[in-house]
Design a protein around this nucleic acid. Structure first.
Lengths: 333, 333
DNA sequence: CGCAGGGATGTTATCGGTCACATTCGACGG
DNA sequence: CCGTCGAATGTGACCGATAACATCCCTGCG
């Protein structure tokens, strides 16, 4: 195929290759002639051949999680967007169980495709453990995970997010804040628990027991039913918006008013958050930014010193979005 | 690499290739010897080389839409799952604008990767038009779209879904049903409008004017504000659950009770639907099934007569999930 | 004027597999 | 006993690009 172009342009195939890869040392006029031929034949270099010869394809492999949860999905989209903008394709392998074998299998599969780099979405503890023992052999970045030695990682600063939520609530006069956590084997769930606990401790408050959820609205509802029965609960920090949604439902059903009786804060700022009843105060994560920094880090490894503006700090700062689900602590009877 | 395996097994590289591709006419004993060597060397055939030689990679290209909307995201996941199960990888290109150029670009890019087949998620009218004029040259299936001549397509039967919603509401005694549509240039939005209108017509009811939304909770809220002002509205069919969510919010804010004053039906059955206030009656779409049938159709084209059970009908039937947001029509004052 | 040096281009090997065809060998029928 | 046939395996070309090295030609300098 490249030969057709070469023939039409009256040059060797190698010269065509040079033009396609913006090699210098091609005369301007020749370059134009070649480009014209490319245009005319509607030529697209075969990605497989190119990858084979270069020993590296133009794609970045993403190991992802077989889920529709908002966070992972948004992160994935962020990575895809960022990759697209810097000229990389992405090849996704969604894994059902993020354990040792599943992850190794996924990585193998991607390496067999000669991906240039790897993005590993490792939000659960088993995945982190698996990544630790993995001989990757390809530049890789870990997302939404704990530190894995040797591998750069990018994530939203969950502790900071939790702190925003807690401090907001304490600032409103609540004596303490309850917490409905995410699925316990998720790193983010743990970090939010940590952040919540630390913030309470820093303010000298007693932390109530953690209530364990699983990210679902269902678990938020269940927790809400429990908490509604207690008179001493005035503020709850939910580990994500879906859970908050379920909790709002439980409270309404049981006649607990939000925010008059209990304040609720979520996490994520899903697009619907502003339209719940009441509109949800929540911690916003910028997943696009995560994707961008992730690719920044990866490019640093792939093409050292090429792109100008570097990766930026690997921890993305969340922000608090105050809406109507939080209010002053009720006056004690 | 394959030569290393060949050497270790004491056979020619071609024999190794035969084993890897389950060719017959390899002695059982030889096969085992080769497999042992493969195991021992932890060998993985290079996907690029294989694809290059075969002129067809082991991946299916998916042209998708740069969005986080539940429907497309769920469909994508469904396709990914189905592909994984039949041993294909998927290569996704998310397009920002699904017009002629964007689509052609995406398809080109995927074809340059020698994808075995193409799945085109073409939910908007411009995309359909673009696909029509596209010289694809690769087996392709169109998803969530209108009929495109020549290309098989798979989608949920939107009209049937709308009918379920409308008939449910009429069955509850409502005289007519209002409709908040999705973004007007989406095929699904139009089909739901059609289905809604047809069902009303079939029952001899007058269809109120369509209210145009854009799938977002925000638009549902806006529409809700409008409708809340009218005394003659007793039933609304929203084109998706997000819109319904926004509408519920608007109604609550304005003191319109659901379902006592107005019944609301959504579409999609997002996981949160059961936990809205009130729990949302909605039309459930089985996106996994869409993915499965899509891949069934595609495999039919890729490997004719190989897989046993065929594709199944290309129209997936939605189901109605009745919850608490719908009820008997209020008695007229 | 001859030669070193570097820019522009061409030639050939190579990436890691598969494909098409050649070869070997044992079994079987005439 | 020999020719034929098909199963099992090997050989070399080829997929479509890039990499490494070779070549050519023009310029500048001693």
């Amino acid at each position: 195929m490249i030969k057709d172009v070469a023939r039409l342009a009256g040059v060797s195939h190698q010269t065509v290759s040079r033009v396609l890869n913006n090699h210098d040392s091609v005369r301007q006029e020749t370059r134009e002639r070649v480009l014209r031929a490319v245009e005319q034949l509607h030529f697209r270099p075969n990605a497989l051949a190119r990858g084979l010869a270069r020993r590296r394809s133009g794609a970045i492999g993403v190991v992802s999680f077989d889920t529709l949860l908002y966070g992972p999905a948004a992160t994935l989209l962020g990575v895809e967007r960022a990759a697209r903008r810097v000229g990389y394709g992405i090849s996704i392998v969604a894994v059902e169980r993020l354990d040792r074998d599943g992850l190794a299998e996924a990585v193998d599969q991607l390496v067999a495709q000669s991906v240039a780099g790897l993005v590993i979405l490792a939000p659960v503890t088993t995945a982190v453990a698996a990544v630790r023992g993995l001989p990757v052999g390809v530049p890789a970045v870990v997302l939404e995970s704990d530190q894995v030695d040797g591998l750069p990682s990018v994530s939203v600063d969950q502790r900071a997010g939790a702190r925003l939520a807690v401090e907001h609530l304490l600032g409103l006069g609540h004596r303490t804040v309850w917490h409905l956590s995410g699925q316990p084997d998720w790193i983010e769930a743990r970090s939010r628990i940590d952040g919540w606990r630390q913030s309470l401790a820093a303010a000298g408050r007693v932390a109530p027991p953690v209530i364990s959820g699983d990210w679902s609205a269902q678990s938020g509802y269940a927790a809400g039913c429990e908490l509604a029965a207690r008179r001493d609960v005035t503020a709850v920090f939910c580990a994500n918006d879906q859970q908050a949604l379920g909790m709002l439902r439980a409270f309404r059903e049981r006649g607990v008013r939000v925010p008059e009786d209990v304040s609720v804060v979520g996490f994520d700022d899903i697009p619907e958050a502003a339209y719940l009843s009441p509109p949800l105060t929540t911690v916003r994560q910028d997943f696009d930014e995560v994707g961008r920094r992730c690719l920044g880090q990866l490019l640093e490894l792939l093409e050292p010193g090429e792109r100008p503006a570097g990766a930026g700090h690997p921890a993305v700062a969340p922000t608090l979005v105050v809406r109507a689900s939080t209010g002053p602590a009720p006056v004690r009877p």
